[in-house]
């Protein structure tokens, strides 16, 4: 059941992005940044985590979840340390994604050459 929900919610988020890309002159960079902001705002309202609970990877794999994770980290430390926590906590939750992307991108660049 979780698999079906992940498929449907994840697919739907991608579908929305595709429709925007195909009907405007916005670049993928614009759309992905927009999704991240949307994820962050939904995270601030406490809605994105509900979506993750409902759809699992269907909500945690799309880039919007990156915005949500940043907000979540910031809010967690806000609770503990006050306003400074917004800055110190921001990357708390999301460091895996950024660290993994930097490391694997680096390794791939050292190993492979662009082809076409």
């Amino acid at each position: 059941m979780m698999y079906l929900k992940a498929f449907l919610v994840g697919g739907l988020i991608c579908l929305i992005a595709q429709v925007i890309l195909d009907n405007t002159k916005l670049s993928p960079g614009h759309v992905l940044s927009g999704l991240t902001v949307a994820g962050g705002v939904l995270g601030g309202l406490g809605l994105y985590d509900k979506l993750v609970e409902f759809a699992g990877a269907g909500a945690s794999v799309p880039i919007a979840s990156f915005g949500n994770s940043l907000v979540k980290g910031a809010l967690q430390e806000l609770d503990q340390n006050g306003l400074v926590g917004v800055l110190t906590g921001m990357f708390e939750v999301t460091s895996t994604g950024i660290a993994a992307a930097i490391v694997f991108a680096f390794l791939a660049a050292v190993t492979f050459n662009p082809k076409s």
Binding site: M2, Y3, A6, F7, L8, V9, G10, G11, L12, I13, C14, L15, A17, Q18, V19, D22, N23, A55, G56, A57, G58, S60, V61, P62
Partner: peptide, 22 residues
């Protein structure tokens, strides 16, 4: 547009489903 939309939905859904499996 239709083909792109279907492909985005299906492939995006599959990636997330694989994510759930992982």
């Amino acid at each position: 547009r239709l083909r792109n939309a279907v492909m985005a939905f299906v492939s995006g859904g599959l990636v997330c489903m694989v994510g759930e499996g992982i």
